[in-house]
Each structure stands twice: as C-alpha cells, then as structure tokens.
Design a protein around this nucleic acid. Sequence first.
DNA 1: CATTTCAGTCAACACACGTAGACTGAAATG
DNA 2: CATTTCAGTCTACGTGTGTTGACTGAAATG
Lengths: 190, 190
Amino acid sequence: MTRAEQRQRTEQRIVAAARQLFGEQGYERTTIRAIAAAADSDAGLVMRYFGSKEKLFAQAAAIPSDGPIEGSPGEIAGQLTSALSAKLADEPTAALAALRAMFSHPEAAAEVRAAMTAQQRQVADQLTGEDAVRRAGVIGALTLGLVIGRHLVRLDGLDASPDELTELVEPLIRDLCGADGSSDRAGSRA
Amino acid sequence: MTRAEQRQRTEQRIVAAARQLFGEQGYERTTIRAIAAAADSDAGLVMRYFGSKEKLFAQAAAIPSDGPIEGSPGEIAGQLTSALSAKLADEPTAALAALRAMFSHPEAAAEVRAAMTAQQRQVADQLTGEDAVRRAGVIGALTLGLVIGRHLVRLDGLDASPDELTELVEPLIRDLCGADGSSDRAGSRA
DNA sequence: CATTTCAGTCAACACACGTAGACTGAAATG
DNA sequence: CATTTCAGTCTACGTGTGTTGACTGAAATG
C-alpha cells in the first residue's frame, strides 16, 4: 500500500471517529485522545494532520446543504417535506455533530445558523405575504425540533417511521407555505 | 445583617450566576471559578455550599413544570398555545440552562426529556386516535424547535413578537390536537 | 544502494479545571 | 467577656486537557 493511500485512509478514519464522537458527546467532552483511540491512531498524529481540535471539528461537522428550493408554494412545501423526510430517515452524522456541539460551541452555532438561514431565506423569498420570513422561521423551527427531538433527545412518539411522521407534518408545512386551497392562509381564529 | 440572611443572599447570588452562565455557555465551558466571580464570591465557598459542580447545576437548571393539561382537544390546544406563548415571551433562564447543557451533559438531557415526556403524555392521553402519541410528539418537537430557535439559535424570523408567532403556530397545534371542525384530521393528501 | 521523506509512536509540557483544607475575622452564644 | 460557630478567603493538589517535539522505521527517490 502506497504512502499517500495510507495517509488518506488514516485521515478518513480520524474524521469518521471525530464525527461519531462529536455527535455522541459534544465538542468539549470529546477529547483528541479519544478520537485517536477510536481511529486506532495517535493524538499527536491527529494534531499534525488537522492542526488543532478546532479545525478537526470544522472538517468533521461541516453540514451538507440541501439542494435549491424553488417553485410554487405547493412545490416548495413538497421539497421541504422530502428534505425533512431524508433527515428523519438516516442519522445525519455530520449534522448531528454540529447540532449537538452548537449549544456549547459558538463556532458550531454559527455553522448551524448559517445552514438554516440560507434555507429559510430561499423559502421566504418565494412565499407571498408580509409574514413570509416569520413563516419560514416557523418551518425551520419545526424541522429543527423534529430532528433534535428524534435523533438527540429521543422524544416519545418521534421514534415512529419517517413516513408516519412526514404524513403528520406535511399538512403543517403546506399550511405554513400557504399552499392550501384559498389564497389567504389558516389563521381562521385570529 | 444577620448571618443566616447573609448566607441566603450569597447562595442566591451564586445560583443566579450559575443559571445565567450555564444558560449562556453550557455545562462544560462554565467553570466554578467563573460562577464564583460573577457572584462576587469564591470557588471554595461554592463547593462548600453546593457540594459539587454537578449539584449546583441540578439546582440551577431545574425546569419548572407547566400546569396540568386537560379538557377537550380544543381546550388542550388552547392550553398548549398559551404555555408556548409564555415560553416565547420571557427568557426561561433555568430551562435554557438545562436545554443548552442537555446536548453535552447526559443528566441535563434526562431532566429535559423527563419534563417534556410528562407533558406529552398528558396530551397524548387525552387525544383520540391511534397516532395520539405521535401527534403529541410532533407538538413537543414544534415547541422545542421554537424555543431553541428563538432563544438559543436566534433563527431568522423567530425574533418576532410572541403574539405574531403564536398566531402563526396556533392553527398548527389545533390541527395536531384534532380540534378542527370535522372529526378526522388534516392528512387530506395521504 | 545511499539518501531523503514522512507516517506513526512516545514522552513531556503548560495550563485550567474541580476540589480539599487551612486560615481569618466577625457574628452568635453562654 | 470568653468561647464557639461559621461566612468568606487563600493556597495547593491531582488530574486531564490540547499541543509540541523528538524519535523510529519503512517507503520514496536519485
């Protein structure tokens, strides 16, 4: 096995171990030594390859962005719903690491905020009404709550299949997008 | 000033400082020394009064429970909405400390899970339908996402007034409670 | 084959943390 | 007033951390 290959594999093992441990225990409780051990490697090597714990975290906890979101309110609702469904289906390890760490680690918080803000802005720009930003915010909050509630907190009832949950949530998202029959939305009681 | 008074005031200052710092920085990043300094006190004294960092945290991050939730689906929706509204209005410092810490501190996670599970069970017990637990879970996730999104992550759009947000969220909660006109709920597309 | 490069290992540093214990002076007690 | 109690302060210990740098042996290079 060539030297470059060997190095690449080791780096990958380290990043994978870091992702898992950061995701399970958060930033502060995860030590370089533990990561190195889990990757069958050495703390000094981790430092040499990634420079610092901070940089390793940044690399391990980068959040993959969802695709672009566009179209009519109904289409937007559909795209949001299926993006949510994907996040419920498998454990998004990298995102979980960022999510878990964000509450005690400002840089991780910025990462999550950036990822969510980008998506919300896409949504808000294409919804009509003066409260579009607010509605996009509630959609973001709902998504955030579901992902955290399912993967991190393991709330009662959120261990259902992704399909069962999506079925329940989809009408809410459609409502918030204003994708229902008439042109003005729900607030039937206000 | 009597000695008992003096002690009580000092303990209160310490708990208040602990609540704030735990809420701002999480469990691990908050040091006994920093708490003592913020309370104009001494680390050794904090130890003597509270025994350990762990015990101080438990006292500072105890989550006050909402009142009982009961009645028809419509009433339940109303109670949930006003409880949510309260959580959006002022910063629930103790709960924020627990919320922020829960992601890196297992004991805090248990605290939050217990508080939320208790409320969800109350709701699920009084809703009809086989998916009651799931619906209560989604309500919990929505609440969690809104509180975290507003106070911890400061998501776009969630900085609106509590009334504006409540107005937007209430129909969703009513829907999840099955409080709408007809007896079977939304899922018009399923 | 001789030399250089570099992945991997090991030991050690400086620092910050939770925690323990000795000490001081004023309030409580008789 | 003499004694005890105790709030508050200071110093120090042990431990675990991120990080550094020296060392080793095999792969790369000429």
